[in-house]
Nucleic acid binder design. Structure first.
Length: 478
RNA sequence: GGCCCCAUCGUCUAGUCAGGUCAGGACACCACCCUUUCAAGGUGGGUACACGGGUUCGAAUCCCGUUGGGGCCGCCA
């Protein structure tokens, strides 16, 4: 084990979005590639918005992606607990320490006072909103406010001069003037720590060596570094990764369609494909390789190759990567993964063993055409039920002449001892020759009648899977 | 508004740190080949260094500015 310790620290206030998933992934890849430790920590200090449901959903999504964690909820570890709401005494201790050492102070300002300060600061073009008016209250003044029962927060006393610097793993040298950093709230009036405070206490105590997170945290970093130092913690290395955007170059959200990991799962993406695609957003291996097994990703991963440009999530490319991963599956795997989608769509019954066996054959003849599990119900229904979608309104394929031919074809197939791909083809070729038409004249109307589609596997393979009875019935009914 | 980040094909990106091969790859797109269709596969094609200055024999690459996009400015994280 190296001394590398990284963490993913989601807040259970919603589903795991692809941006968060990518952050988790890069932390995980770094840990795995460096033989380090990947910690999962739940940041539920927002009493109002955190929910157990969302907590579980995030865990589920992480598990689905295959990002196993070494320490965290459910698996334990030496640095627990890993849920912030269970670490309150720790924060209380550090808050008291700050108070005792004069690093922080109780502030009794009301929201109205704060709003006034904000307006004033903006009008004067100052960065610091809080003017620090509660910084040096005397014991009497403080006692009086307490006696009045006024709620208070604990604010961190920030220096007014100088600056905080760090070398960001993805952005290089960074510097913030203290003049733009005001006294910020570390403990809320409900007694719970704020993100910036809890985060430092936890990262410090958990001995996190590298903090890899989104770009949107850059401006939190100087405040956090200030505290790491004040507490005597080793300051971790920071790496701020670029955002993931929607096609309109706005932060990716539900507005852009699927944005949460579980939506991708339900839509029919393979977890390894989503992981692969996400890895390519903000990172590249420096070679032309784009399709990766997870193990290859771990091998190729390097923080040095993270880039710093926001990336637009491209659904087309994601689907391409998904198709590439589908190709690498065996027929058995494809069938097993497809089955639940067919069940859910009502195409087959859960306990229909015949259908299950048939699916193996269907999947086999589909081959690489089945590049997305989400397409399965619509495209495979014709093999399991007569009530299948006929999306292509290509009735033009079925003029009276064509129907006559198909009915003749049905008669000939009916006479067959059994129908397999070879006999299906020779019969059709024979009829085409007799009629003096091209094979395609028969193939296309037949495929449409049999499958409701203009595209699909080799028609003769499809007929073999469909079986003589079904083929004859559907062709005879035109 | 203040502070901060970013800028190569429509999209993801290589190339930028140590200036010098027709700016490379992939997705998407188009054409052709293969083929009973489609997908896959193969071949080929078009499309980019945001703009303006500067440094230099030479700039996508270094510097400055402009423009554009994004982030943060919460008792959210």
């Amino acid at each position: 084990m190296s001394h590398i310790r990284v963490r993913f620290a989601p807040s259970p206030t919603g589903t795991l979005h692809v941006g968060g998933a990518r952050t988790a992934l890069f932390n995980w890849l770094y840990a795995r590639s460096q033989k380090g430790v990947f910690v999962l920590r739940i940041e539920d200090t927002d009493q109002l918005r955190s929910t157990e449901e969302s907590h579980q959903q995030i865990l589920r999504a992480i598990r689905w992606l295959g990002l196993d964690y070494d320490e965290g909820p459910g698996v334990g570890g030496e640095y627990g607990p890993y849920i912030q709401s269970e670490r309150k005494e720790l924060y209380d201790d550090y808050a008291q320490q700050m108070l005792d050492r004069g690093l922080a102070y109780r502030c009794y300002c009301t929201p109205e006072e704060l709003e006034e300060m904000r307006v004033k600061a903006i009008a004067e073009g100052r960065q610091r909103i809080c003017d620090g008016r509660c910084r040096d209250l005397s014991d009497e003044e403080r006692a009086q406010r307490e006696a009045e029962g006024r709620p208070s927060v604990i604010r961190v006393r920030m220096p007014e001069e100088g600056s905080i610097k760090w070398t960001d793993i993805v952005h290089g040298p960074m510097e913030f003037e203290y003049a733009v950093l005001d006294d910020w709230v570390a403990v809320k009036s409900d007694g719970f720590p704020t993100y910036n405070f809890a985060c430092v206490v936890d990262d410090g105590l958990m001995e996190i060596s590298h903090v890899l997170r989104g770009d949107d945290h850059i401006s939190n970093t100087p405040r956090q570094i200030h505290l790491f130092r004040a507490f005597g913690f080793k300051v971790p290395r920071f790496g701020h990764m670029p955002m993931i955007l929607g096609p309109d170059r706005q932060r990716l959200s539900k507005r852009h369609g699927a944005a949460s990991v579980e939506e991708f799962r339900d839509a029919g993406y393979l977890p390894e494909a989503l992981v692969n695609y996400l890895a390519l957003l903000g990172w590249n291996p420096g070679t032309d390789q784009e399709v990766f097994e997870i193990s290859q990703l771990i091998k190729a991963f390097s923080l040095k190759r993270l880039n710093n440009t926001a990336a637009v999530f491209d659904v087309e490319k994601c689907r391409y990567i998904n198709a590439e991963h589908m190709k690498r599956l065996t027929d058995e795997q494809r069938a097993a993964l497809t089955w639940p989608f067919l069940v859910k769509a009502g195409v087959v019954e859960e306990d229909d063993e015949d259908a299950r066996e048939k699916l193996a054959r269907v999947v086999h003849i589909m081959g690489a055409r089945l590049s997305f599990l989400g397409d399965a119900p619509q495209r495979l229904a014709c093999y399991f039920t007569d009530d299948f979608p006929r999306l292509d309104e290509e009735e033009g394929l079925l003029d009276e002449e064509a129907k006559l031919r198909l009915r003749e074809l049905a008669r000939r197939y009916e006479k067959l001892e059994s129908l397999d791909a070879a006999s299906a083809e020779s019969v059709m070729r024979g009829l085409a020759e007799e009629l003096g038409v091209k094979l395609g004249e028969l193939v296309h109307p037949t495929r449409y009648v049999l499958t409701g589609q203009k595209v699909g596997p080799s028609l003769f393979d499809a007929m073999e899977v469909l079986g003589k009875e079904t083929v004859v019935r559907r062709l005879g009914a035109v």
